[in-house]
Design a protein around this nucleic acid. Structure first.
Length: 279
DNA sequence: GTGACCACCTGGCCGC
DNA sequence: TGCGGCCAGGTGGTCA
């Protein structure tokens, strides 16, 4: 599923291919995807607008169409494809943007989980989905004191806390497993018991994992593919995620899979121990 | 304020 | 072969 590195790959690919294109028309085949406006308003605001930039905040893509911002979240299986006008619509293409040059941008989403919101520069950081996001690992604001403050009263598992986009934005199920492995922290460890040294490890390893994943184009597990079928190579670098039954590359212990708050979670029971003392 | 649970949605897989 | 049930999971909403 697309996480921050995959979304960054999509952004870079789309930026090369559709920047400066002007929308002629839009077809919406699954109206529930458009969240904060009705479909008529959605079209009215975007038609005849030219794409001037594509930004990314966490896992959200923000298409800047002059004064209108189109916020797209790919959720589980969202993908963009650029196709010629005359190609027939495929089964899971739910939104099609028709450009004036005869090409189309098609949003394809098998599970229909993806979302679109409209916003403006003024409202982006106050009322849009982007406004709720915490710091990305790349941002200077993500510091040990910040994370300590956010977690000091939380009894939830650290795995759940790192998936909370209002604390750290950009980490998803795959990368949280990898970050916790590299940090030698058991995924069920109570968040408030983490030491500052461990939090430092979490921040450093988040940065390492995400930077490497972006460099390799993200992770291709099951369905994820970025625009035009570009696939990532980070799955070859995974230590624990999806490795259940395989030996840990560090200590040779068999990797286990558990559920943490309903999420499939992979870890090494030898390398990743729960904290025994409160800090 | 916090945390647990559920709904959203469909394809793939498994057992019968 | 066909069918039913379960699983996958990011996010938002609800409820205790």
């Amino acid at each position: 599923m697309p996480e921050l590195p995959e979304v960054e790959t999509v952004r870079n690919t789309l930026k090369k291919l559709i920047l400066n294109k002007t929308i002629r028309d839009i077809d919406v085949f699954y109206e529930k995807m458009i969240r904060n406006v009705d479909v008529d308003t959605f079209k009215e605001k975007l038609v005849n607008k030219t794409l001037t930039d594509i930004r990314r905040y966490g896992k959200h893509l923000v298409f800047q169409y002059e004064d209108v911002l189109l916020i797209s979240h790919l959720r589980m299986e969202g993908k963009y494809f650029i196709k010629d006008l005359d190609l027939p619509r495929e089964k899971h293409e739910h939104v099609i943007f028709y450009f004036k040059d005869g090409t189309t941008l098609r949003y394809n989403d098998t599970r229909k989980f993806g979302t679109f919101d409209l916003s403006t520069e003024e409202l982006l950081f106050t009322t849009s989905p982007v406004a709720k996001l915490g710091y990305e690992p790349f941002e200077k604001g993500l510091t040990v004191p910040y994370l300590y403050k956010k977690l000091e009263k939380k009894s939830i598992a650290i795995k759940s806390a790192l998936l909370d986009q209002t604390i750290i934005t950009g980490l998803g199920n795959i990368y949280v497993d990898e970050v916790l492995f590299l940090s030698k922290i058991h995924p069920e460890t109570e968040s408030k018991t983490l030491t500052k040294k461990q939090l430092k490890q979490v921040i450093q390893n988040s940065l390492i994992v995400l930077e490497k994943a972006i460099k390799l184009g993200g992770t291709t597990i099951r369905s994820y593919t970025s625009s035009l079928g570009v696939t990532g190579r980070f799955q070859n670098e995974l230590f624990v995620h999806t490795k259940v039954g395989e030996q840990c590359l560090v200590c040779n212990t068999v990797i286990e899979k558990i559920k943490v708050n309903g999420r499939g979670t992979y870890y090494c029971p030898e390398c990743q121990k729960k904290n025994t003392k409160k800090k």
